[in-house]
């Protein structure tokens, strides 16, 4: 799915991330941890080609990220669902249209897909909030809407950047449950979080690997959960 070979990235002269060499296998579940500013978000951005490595090589779904043209990047992002930390909604569109946005921009907004959308909105528990504008949603509702948008294109990989950062514990568990269900459907899941309690809570539900970013390097933290 995602292969990094001695990849590095830096915003200035000093690399933020260096010597990234790892493989995220299909159907695997990963937590990405590390202190604030360690580079978790940057790592995820490398995984959906918002950033390109300044050294080394990254293969995304079998394609060298550096070789992708702009249309290629757009097509890749239809196969990689991302839940952004700040959700990234279009505030002038209702929640249901925000969830359907990947379908809309890819020209796949068919009546069949509309039925799937309704099912998906129900699955994330937002049926009654489908017509609300994003600013009217609570933190948990926003995160669930972002998750729904991330999976509406039936992607191979789901990347979530601090999906439980602004929600209470119950909502965190609910979001985790949704991501675990997706993983059971065969999706590769990567969750960036600094919430160790969430990682512990996942232990009973899924076989996950914890990647720890520290000092610009990624290491596997202990044994798999």
């Amino acid at each position: 799915m995602i292969v990094m070979e001695e990849a590095a990235y830096g915003y200035g002269t000093e690399p933020l991330l260096a010597d990234l060499s790892l493989q995220l296998q299909p159907g695997s579940f990963h937590f990405l941890t590390g202190p604030s500013g360690a580079g978790k978000t940057t790592f995820l951005k490398l995984c959906y080609a918002e950033l390109l490595p300044t050294a080394g090589r990254i293969q995304l779904l079998g394609v060298d990220a550096a070789a992708l043209d702009r249309d290629g990047v757009a097509d890749l992002r239809r196969r990689i669902g991302v839940v952004h930390q700040d959700c990234q909604f279009l505030d002038h569109l209702p929640t249901s249209e925000n969830i359907a946005l990947p379908l809309t921009v890819s020209g796949r907004a068919t009546p069949d897909q509309a039925a799937n959308l309704s099912e998906l909105v129900s699955w994330v528990g937002l049926k009654s909030r489908a017509h609300a504008l994003p600013p009217e949603l609570s933190g948990g509702e926003r995160q669930r809407a972002a998750l729904a948008r991330a999976i509406i294109m039936d992607p191979d990989v789901i990347l979530a950047d601090e999906p439980t950062g602004n929600v209470d514990w119950d909502m965190s568990l609910r979001l985790l449950q949704l991501l675990v269900e997706l993983n059971r459907m065969g999706k590769t899941v990567v969750i960036a979080t600094h919430d160790l309690a969430l990682i512990r809570a996942a232990k009973s539900q899924v076989q996950a690997r914890v990647l720890r970013i520290q000092g610009g390097h990624v290491t596997v933290a202990g044994a798999d959960l």
Binding site: D71, R78, Q88
Partner: peptide, 16 residues
């Protein structure tokens, strides 16, 4: 700019 950024993030091509 925000609309463009978000639509790019969810897979919109420049042409769209």
């Amino acid at each position: 700019e925000q609309v463009i950024r978000v639509t790019r993030l969810v897979g919109a091509r420049d042409s769209y």
